[in-house]
């Protein structure tokens, strides 16, 4: 699912009906709800977890928490709320695993932060991707971004969330979310300078 051609998913009447049906005992309604949002949500969780098993576990936990606390749900977009739960859950998990480490503070002699280690365990470096595929190069370069910027980047690009929604998830202002996105783009531009020149040609 790409943001450019993705239909904006909103908490609509269908979601409310599905939730109501699930509460009344219709197990298939839950399946339909999970199916509807699994693409962007799982993709995002996968980007910030330690592989498939870990991502599956977080994905399930997000849904369990979402359904359990549905009475507290006040937002317009269910997807945005799911992302908020996922964001909080992943922060909790990282803190629990390494209580002495901050997510972004360098923890090893090579200066890499915990977030870099988490990412590097799964996605291969540029050498592995060969550097030929621009998409792969962007993905690899994005893994090197600080966690806040990386999160804004993927929430925008993968989930297609608005900056207002991203700001709510990250508990910051819209301007901060925008600034993080701009820093991310700027760093990616520097990282992919040769490829970016081609894109600038496209722009002309």
């Amino acid at each position: 699912m790409k943001v450019t051609d993705r239909e904006r998913i909103r908490m609509d009447q269908d979601d409310a009906k599905l939730l109501s049906a699930y509460r009344k005992g219709d197990a298939e309604a839950l399946g339909a709800l999970v199916e509807k949002y699994k693409g962007p949500l799982y993709g995002f969780i996968y980007k910030f977890s330690e592989g498939r098993e870990d991502a599956d576990e977080v994905f399930q936990e997000v849904w369990v928490r979402a359904i359990k606390n549905m009475s507290r749900y006040r937002q317009k977009s269910l997807l945005s709320w799911l992302f908020r739960i996922a964001h909080n859950l992943m922060i909790d998990r990282i803190r629990r695993r390494r209580p002495e480490s901050s997510f972004d503070v360098p923890m090893s002699p090579d200066g890499l932060a915990l977030s870099d280690h988490l990412a590097s365990g799964r996605l291969g470096p540029d050498k592995e991707t060969g550097g030929r595929d621009l998409g792969r190069r962007i993905e690899a370069a994005a893994e090197k971004l600080p966690s806040d910027q990386r999160e804004v980047f993927w929430l925008r690009m993968q989930a297609g969330l608005s900056f207002k929604e991203i700001a709510k998830i990250q508990k910051c202002s819209i301007n901060t979310a925008l600034a993080r996105m701009q820093y991310a783009l700027s760093k990616l531009r520097n990282e992919l300078s040769s490829e970016y020149a081609e894109l600038q040609e496209v722009g002309r």
Binding site: K2, G39, Y42, K47, F59, I138, W154, Q200, G203
Partner: peptide, 19 residues
């Protein structure tokens, strides 16, 4: 605008599904 659009189009979608 065109440059940003081209960049966004180049960002790969994470085509991965849960179990």
């Amino acid at each position: 605008r065109d440059e940003l659009k081209a960049f966004c189009a180049s960002v790969p979608a994470i085509d991965i599904e849960p179990s």
